[in-house]
């Protein structure tokens, strides 16, 4: 829809102007914050995530399921959206089948066009993650067909599962270890806390558009 000649003209000007007078510009050094030991990585991750008002619960193995059941009950969350055919979804279904729970489990099975209106009314969403980053704490999310992008965004409460063994020191390290450039899906992202703003008098306020609460189960 753009003029083909716009592209040609822009590029020809750029070719004329970019290289011809290029002053010598040395290559940038690689930026890699100093590596942390696994224990330090985990502690730093927890400390920094909590500093931006994420709630982090350290749990062993599958203990997160029971912890989650309690949490959903005390907060009176009516509905929880999740993805089927994931290790998270399987455990949830098993637990809910074994023992009823007041929170309604809602699997995301349809395209957003059919699910959008329902999704905007759901109380919480749960997702797995690709791990976390310690040095500037964030979780890594690579949404999948099972756990679509909006599962971590639209419901007011986002619950995320992070494996302690998948916490990297820094973003550069995660890019490398996960082979991000080649393997990342159509949308990949870092999340460091609940949605926030400081646009009114620089007062930090949470939950401006997306989740008001971010709950992380750190699985050790």
């Amino acid at each position: 829809m753009s003029r083909p000649s716009a592209r040609t003209q822009i590029l020809s000007r750029l070719y004329k102007n970019a290289g011809a007078i290029a002053p010598y510009t040395p290559e940038a050094a690689h930026w890699s914050p100093p590596a942390l030991s696994p224990a330090k990585r985990i502690n730093r991750f927890v400390e920094l995530m909590e500093a931006v008002r994420s709630e982090v619960y350290r749990v062993k193995g599958n203990a997160w399921v029971d912890a989650l059941r309690k949490l959903l009950q005390t907060r009176e969350l009516a509905t929880l959206a999740y993805g089927k055919k994931t290790w998270c979804g399987d455990l949830l279904e098993k637990s809910w089948a074994a023992k009823p729970h007041p929170t309604n489990l809602i699997p995301w099975t349809q395209d957003i066009e059919e699910f959008r209106d329902e999704l905007f009314g759901i109380s919480a969403g749960i997702t797995t993650t690709m791990g976390g980053i310690a040095e500037a704490a964030a979780m890594i999310l690579w949404p999948t067909p099972e756990e679509p992008r909006l599962l971590s965004l639209v419901p007011p409460v986002h619950i995320a599962l992070v494996k302690a063994s998948e916490i990297y020191t820094s973003f550069p390290e995660a890019l490398k270890k996960l082979d991000w450039a080649k393997k990342a899906p159509t949308n990949s992202l870092l999340i460091s806390g609940p949605s926030k703003t400081a646009d009114i008098e620089l007062i930090l306020q949470f939950g401006v558009h997306g989740p008001t609460d971010l709950i992380v189960f750190l699985i050790e």
Partner: peptide
Amino acid sequence: RITTYFNMIKGPRQKGEKDGPKEVHLVILD
């Protein structure tokens, strides 16, 4: 040190995916 969200967008919704825009356009301005 980091913002709440860092989004990396590589394209529109792929076959099998349940959400995401069906079309993504990039306008490069001079």
